[in-house]
Write a protein that binds this DNA or RNA. Sequence first.
DNA 1: TTGAAAGCGCTAACAC
DNA 2: GTGTTAGCGCTTTCAA
Lengths: 337, 337
Amino acid sequence: MALTLHDVALRAGVSFKTVSNVINGHPHVRPATRAKVEAAIAELGYRPNLTARSLRSGHTGAITLAVPQLRLPYFAELADSIISSAEELGMVVLLEQTGGVRERELEMLASPRLRMSDGLIFSPLGMGEQDAPRVNAPVPLVLLGERIFSAGCDHVVMQNVEGARAATEHLLARGRRRIAVIGAHENEEIGTAGLRLRGYREALAAHGVPYDAGRVASMWMWHRSNGAAAMHQLLDKGVEFDAVFGFNDTLAQGAMRVLQDAGLRVPQDVAVIGFDDLDETRYTLPTLSTVDPGRAEIAQTALQLLMDRIKGTTVGGPRRVESTFRLMERESTAVSR
Amino acid sequence: MALTLHDVALRAGVSFKTVSNVINGHPHVRPATRAKVEAAIAELGYRPNLTARSLRSGHTGAITLAVPQLRLPYFAELADSIISSAEELGMVVLLEQTGGVRERELEMLASPRLRMSDGLIFSPLGMGEQDAPRVNAPVPLVLLGERIFSAGCDHVVMQNVEGARAATEHLLARGRRRIAVIGAHENEEIGTAGLRLRGYREALAAHGVPYDAGRVASMWMWHRSNGAAAMHQLLDKGVEFDAVFGFNDTLAQGAMRVLQDAGLRVPQDVAVIGFDDLDETRYTLPTLSTVDPGRAEIAQTALQLLMDRIKGTTVGGPRRVESTFRLMERESTAVSR
DNA sequence: TTGAAAGCGCTAACAC
DNA sequence: GTGTTAGCGCTTTCAA
């Protein structure tokens, strides 16, 4: 059985409350007493029972992070950032994977497990605006992305429309007029895919280029394999294009490889751009142009918002913070035509 | 304030213990009573307080997973697998990043936070054999990899020596004799790097090819940038080679890109092989030959061993399980010379 | 089949 | 400064 405060108190010859005071850095403890207690703690190798502390104090020192899947590199890099930032604040992170499946997301929001943490950072993918009433976690919540606008909680969003517009304009500026899109979600308006499509269309419209739905490949998941599959579809259908905008970098990478297999040169024949600025975009052949959505900023901001809510620092109504994006020009769009 | 068993009991007109019985699926509850209680739970939206349950029952329903960094794709894919497997067992995962730094690893092992979970799956990188006495977590522990052989706990290891030997032999079979290595750890014998180097040397020896330390580039971290840096070093030093063995896929990817920048063709001039079988190896240009270390198997096995310990199923002394590897031949080694 | 009582290890009030 | 007391919400034991 693990040691308790009582064991330490016995050893140090004080009451167990004094031990508690020492551990919690209570100011009014005589140095000699403190030393005695600390010695006893060290000798015994005592470690406080955080579960008991949580029950009593009402907070756990943990937060939950819920993402679709860690094997999507974007979420791995995001989780890395959030865990690092949390660690600096002395918080530990419970990681849940929802698979991007709506039912699992809803289940997670309602789960008693959430109360093993003090708050939740949640990146939904399957849920949508219609689920706003059910966004009702038993702990403070920060939402990542715009899938559920009207939930009454803090949001951290990236500039999806603006970033996608910039990416598209970058291609237009390279003389590309027939820009295929990979990763759309049909009938989606305010999810990541919907917003990026809107940015794409806005850019086209601004430059007087007609929108052609035939160049838009839908793909619910955004793995490399989905990018490859979408590109195969476009090629098989004989769709003509001189550029590809992958709604994320892994889609773009999958697509790029299929293009190359088909004998098309990137960027000479087809320019390719992605979204996310993953580390690997710096090492593909050619390196992949992309949009840096400000991932580190998103991680830090989300955590900050959440900690404010947890601490109850008065912050008023739901807040919405937007990260800044940056276009990363690399080899995959380096040639004009 | 959140609802408690008492609130539900009041509502249902029974004692709070009966509510507890219902929640825990206790067999001897009259159906009518059960229905009454369940109705009350639903109406009130009651959720049990897991912290209190943990304190009383002595287990948390969580495990800790400690890895160097999630932005190393190997660990992201590993964590993905472990979290998915854990979820199937009804366990949730606390994710810690150690950065691969020895002090942080030791600190984590001694941390009271570990007791917020029932057990630990730990992938050390900074610690070594000399730290075996300090591998003494307050919860059951399963070690991933061979850095600390003599710790008295369960191990799950991959076949590093055998896999590296197979990779090297694959290159030798392609007529390559001057095989550079990237990612060695100097003076390491039983870490991942040390074992893979041993496999490499064994393969050379078996084929009568002399070992040349000048072809071995050391690199502590295994990011893509490290692979690129190592390759630059080799090229700058004028080292001659007709193949490169990256000790993981990200190193290989970084190296491959630098080779291509230097005007060397992969695989015609230089064959490249990695280790880990990351998803991205299927999409690089050329696709990257690699060794599949059996990641899914490792994840499941580690979890199984840990759950055995947690449940106290009598299992005897420390167990050691080895996953099976598989050579994945792709384009980056497709040409003989 | 249900209820009462005890206590998991800790922190927060308050007394000494 | 230090000790005593009372619970946090739950499960476990044992009695009814």
